[in-house]
Structure formats: structure tokens, C-alpha cells
Computed example of a mutant assay.
Amino acid sequence: MKYTYRTKGTCSTQIDLELEGNVVRNVHYTGGCDGNLKSVAKLVEGMKAEDVIEKLEGITCGWKGTSCGDQLARALRQALSEEKK
């Protein structure tokens, strides 16, 4: 399933990703810190969505209440929820 998530509270504005069952594929951020977000995308490639959520959920960036990693966790949680419908 292809999924697009509009981020909130981060420099990145959107996350596009695919889920094959519960396996994360093809994560792409729009905006944000290019090198860091390419690294995050590469690190989570092939991981179970639940494992990514566990590792990234709640991470903050500076004074912000969220981060691009936390937004990926939220996107995955939402995508998994929609897939169950």
C-alpha cells in the first residue's frame, strides 16, 4: 500500500512510503534535512512498521514536540490503522 502523510511541526512537509503487509518500503521525505532523512529512510527500509514505531516514536527535535522520525512513527501508525479497516 502506498501512503502519503502530511507532517506537522517539522521542517519536512510530507512523508511518502509503502507498506508490504507490515514491512516498510520506499520512505521519502519532502523537505527537511536531506542527508539525515535519507539516512533515516535507508535505516528503516525492510523493517517491520511496529519496530520502527517503537524506536522513533516520541523523539523530539530541539524545542519542538516532535521530529521527522516521530512523524514517520505517526505516519506508520496511521497507515497500519487504515490497512486494518
Score class of each variant (00 low, 15 high):
22 N>Q: 10
39 S>Y: 08
42 K>C: 06
24 V>D: 06
2 K>P: 07
38 K>L: 13
62 G>L: 07
6 R>F: 04
75 A>N: 10
22 N>S: 07
21 G>Y: 15
43 L>R: 10
73 A>S: 08
16 D>V: 07
29 Y>W: 15
73 A>F: 01
34 D>M: 08
64 K>R: 15
85 K>P: 02
33 C>D: 12
66 T>E: 05
20 E>G: 04
49 A>C: 11
67 S>A: 09
21 G>N: 10
50 E>T: 09
77 R>Q: 15
4 T>F: 01
76 L>G: 00
65 G>L: 06
36 N>G: 12
82 E>R: 13
45 E>C: 07
81 S>H: 13
74 R>C: 06
22 N>L: 03
84 K>M: 15
62 G>Y: 07
30 T>Y: 12
80 L>D: 09
24 V>G: 07
62 G>V: 09
28 H>M: 05
4 T>P: 05
52 V>C: 07
25 R>K: 13
42 K>H: 09
85 K>I: 11
66 T>W: 02
74 R>A: 10
65 G>A: 13
81 S>E: 15
85 K>G: 14
34 D>C: 10
55 K>L: 11
44 V>N: 01
26 N>I: 05
40 V>H: 00
60 T>S: 11
26 N>Q: 13
81 S>V: 08
82 E>M: 14
41 A>H: 06
17 L>T: 08
73 A>R: 01
15 I>W: 00
39 S>V: 04
44 V>R: 01
5 Y>T: 05
2 K>Q: 15
33 C>L: 14
47 M>N: 10
85 K>L: 12
46 G>I: 12
49 A>E: 03
57 E>T: 05
53 I>M: 05
20 E>M: 12
69 G>C: 09
64 K>I: 00
2 K>W: 11
33 C>F: 09
28 H>W: 04
39 S>T: 13
36 N>T: 06
67 S>H: 02
17 L>E: 03
27 V>R: 01
57 E>Q: 12
78 Q>S: 13
34 D>L: 12
69 G>T: 08
54 E>L: 11
79 A>Y: 00
66 T>D: 04
58 G>D: 06
17 L>F: 13
37 L>T: 10
53 I>W: 01
13 T>N: 03
45 E>K: 04
78 Q>K: 15
16 D>A: 12
2 K>I: 14
11 C>L: 11
19 L>G: 06
70 D>H: 14
49 A>G: 03
69 G>M: 03
21 G>W: 14
82 E>N: 14
37 L>P: 04
83 E>I: 15
45 E>V: 14
55 K>A: 15
8 K>I: 15
24 V>T: 02
72 L>M: 08
22 N>M: 02
58 G>Y: 01
15 I>P: 02
32 G>N: 02
57 E>Y: 08
67 S>L: 03
47 M>Y: 04
11 C>V: 10
80 L>Y: 11
17 L>Y: 05
37 L>G: 05
74 R>W: 11
28 H>Q: 07
14 Q>I: 03
42 K>W: 05
30 T>Q: 15
